[in-house]
Design a protein around this nucleic acid. Structure first.
Lengths: 346, 346
DNA sequence: TTGAAAGCGCTAACAA
DNA sequence: TTGTTAGCGCTTTCAA
């Protein structure tokens, strides 16, 4: 039924001839209510169109069934895929989400943000913004202040906090080994911006794979981009000039690999015959580049789900007073997708 | 300072030797507090590390300075770009965001979702999920129940609600005219899924542009995809078979255009010489496809910003008791980006 | 199984 | 300029 003014628990109680407490028991599904009382209360609730106020409940219960989420770079597809996993799993577990997006990747605005979440009684916080430069330095000073479970995504693990990441290092190593396995001898790399942890991990994976097989790995064999297609194009052109014998290239992400393919196309470099090209991320379009791109798929949706799951565990253990729970570090494995940009169809 | 238990307004009041009301005035920056009282209270706040509870304030003020956002398809880049605009502008205006993502595009779960927002006292709601099939039918029945400002993104305008959209129809018409202007005579179309409003708008723009210039427009000249690259590939192949004289194609979005380019590449169809290809959306990578894709850029970030701005207006007008405000319908213009896939470089 | 009383932490309205 | 009173709508605790 439509009502002009929202009914409160008080109206329901009066209308049903019971105390507010009893109504509270009914809406929370407590067992200690007589069947017919329950039925009557439910009818009144229906009749008045009553909905409990989550705000009032949060205040009185001192928890909000809500997580705070910090993200960054939503205009890129990666963070959004993660966020999508977070929304899905939170919904599943019955948590709401308060969202904040960092406009800058630096760390200076962290404190007010945490305060804001705390002021809103969030049950836990998911830090889904990337680790860049010094933007984790606040952890050392502020961590003691946060008396709320907090979980970090995609950063270097440390013992004192819970972290869920995708194994960038492993993925990079595997794809480099794939290129080596194809018989390529001169494997270059276009890295992401090296102040990003993920970019460093990928570069390190490439380097270690080469070293382990006894290949040299020198500075003329790589250049640095900033994840964007445009930067990838420039970085590739520079790399191609200083490393002309290159017969394969591992590009730090698919966006940059996209423009590498374009450049190869323009320069009449045949892919994969003259140059094998591999990316990282596994964005949906990569399969439909010209030619289809070999890449490392990181399941960011799954990352988001896992994060929420883990955070919910932290929250619930804490409520059950299990004392301080040991932070866990979880590493998810990426998946190699071999396509035409490295291997002519079988 | 670090405190074990969070201080409340009560502790601050006692410590500062004033009433809670005075503390309240200080934290809300009210003018009617003596300078030294204010100073003393502020010091105590600092000393105790006091932070006001947003929850308690929401309860007592009956508003939360929070918007509810309904999104869908975050794993695609479009919705995320919009969300990014929403987060940015909300932050700017001092509103927080409660986020919900629809897992299905259908309408059956709308009611609980609205209730959830209302239970959380949101000041307004932004409906940023696409209009598909009958998933706006709830509007007719539920709109009367919602006593909260609500704003819709990207849907057919209607007089009784506020809507902000990008003019898909105009964009499609412009790009088709661009193709006509190049002298192409047989312009096909790969549409998005036609239960989507946006897909219908784009198709209609294409049809009308053709008609207005006296070109025929028949069923053999178009096929339907579902936005994904994969579907675009299939739809294009089908189209190419039934409409072999096609010398230009307007593809419903960039993802599908991406695979159209791949297919052309594989079939040795020269783009743009044999076939001009145009997309829609203006995703970042489109400039780096092979060849660079002509497309219609829709500024979804801006769309999100505008939406928040407009919603904030609705909310504030309402609080100032301006009576019922007339819903507005805002249409943003997209931008044509001409690149190599339709026009050899100048 | 039910209810009364006392809060959760803050603010609106009024009074001084 | 400041304080008092009475809520906001719900839950916890304890008693019946």
């Amino acid at each position: 039924m439509v009502t002009k003014k929202k009914a409160t628990i008080y109206e329901v109680a009066r209308e049903a001839g019971v105390s507010r407490q009893t109504v509270s028991r009914v809406i929370n599904g407590r067992p200690d209510v007589a069947p017919e009382t329950r039925k009557r209360v439910k009818e009144v609730i229906e009749k008045l169109g009553y909905r409990p106020s989550a705000i009032a409940r949060s205040l009185s219960q001192r928890r909000s069934y809500t997580f705070g989420v910090v993200t960054a770079g939503l205009k890129y597809i990666g963070p959004s895929r993660t966020l999508s996993g977070i929304t899905e799993q939170s919904e599943e577990l019955g948590y709401g989400l308060l969202l904040k997006e960092l406009t800058s990747f630096s760390a200076n605005n962290v404190h007010p943000l945490l305060q804001w979440f705390i002021a809103h009684q969030v049950d836990g916080i998911i830090w889904a913004a990337p680790e860049i430069g010094e933007n984790r330095s606040w952890l050392d000073t502020l961590l003691g202040e946060i008396h709320i479970p907090i979980l970090f995504l995609t950063m270097e693990k440390r013992k004192d906090v819970s972290v869920v990441s995708i194994d960038n290092y492993l993925g990079a190593k595997e794809i480099t080994n794939h290129l080596i396995g194809l018989g390529r001898k001169n494997i270059g790399h276009v890295s992401g911006p090296l102040d990003w942890w993920e970019a460093r991990q990928r570069k390190q994976g490439w380097m270690d794979a080469l070293s382990e097989k006894g290949f040299p790995c020198t500075d003329k064999m790589w250049t640095e981009g900033n994840w964007s297609s445009k930067s990838g194009k420039l970085a590739f052109q520079e790399l191609y000039e200083k490393f002309p014998e290159m017969d394969a290239v591992f590009v730090g992400n698919d966006q940059m690999a996209c423009s590498v393919l374009q450049t190869a196309f323009e320069k009449n470099i045949r892919v994969p015959q003259d140059l094998a090209v591999a990316g990282f991320d596994g964005i949906a379009e990569s399969e439909f580049f010209s030619p289809a791109l070999t890449t490392v798929f990181q399941n960011q949706h799954d990352l988001g789900c896992t994060a929420v799951q883990e955070l919910a565990n932290l929250v619930e253990n804490r409520l059950e007073g299990e004392g301080e729970i040991k932070p866990r570090q979880i590493l998810l494995e990426p998946e190699l997708l071999v396509r035409q940009s490295t291997q002519v169809s079988i």
